[in-house]
Amino acid sequence: MLKSSGIAQKSDWEAKLPDVNRRKSGPYVVIECYQKIPCNPCEGACPNKAVTIGEDINTIPCVEYGRCNGCGICISRCPGLAIFVVDEGFCPGFGKILIPWEYLPLPTKGSVVAGVGRDGKELCPAEVVEVRIAKNQDRTAVIGLKVPLDFVNQVRGIKLGGEENGR
């Protein structure tokens, strides 16, 4: 299914989550990179050396969750925009996710947008709680979204707003 549609299925992404204890103990990175490709920027991006690819550049990145503090620095470094950070303890009933964003408009902090799943379908409202667009992110913004706890590992994008060119 992933190979024929580009949409990761539950069994695919569940395998990328840390164990339940780690999930409850603070924000963690989720690297949705499922295929052996010659690529390794994520490895060099993490200041805490939590991501390893190693000698063979085709290896799938491996996360040592004990080293990951959920800072989100790696998100904008991945050319595949395949890295997310999930915080299940954000506030009661809600979690926070960090997603990469390279479209216009850039959502504004405080606005409520539609959170969409891996298939682009709307799932739930998501409040924009953070917008990072530092120079070293090189035009890949990182958006922080507050979403209902049930959706922290389902929402992976937001609905494109704004005018389309050429209309």
Binding site: E102, Y103, L104, L106, R139, N165, G166
Partner: peptide, 10 residues
């Protein structure tokens, strides 16, 4: 047709 008015990268 028209021109691209704004772009996230360019």
């Amino acid at each position: 047709m028209s021109r691209i008015s704004e772009h996230p990268i360019l």
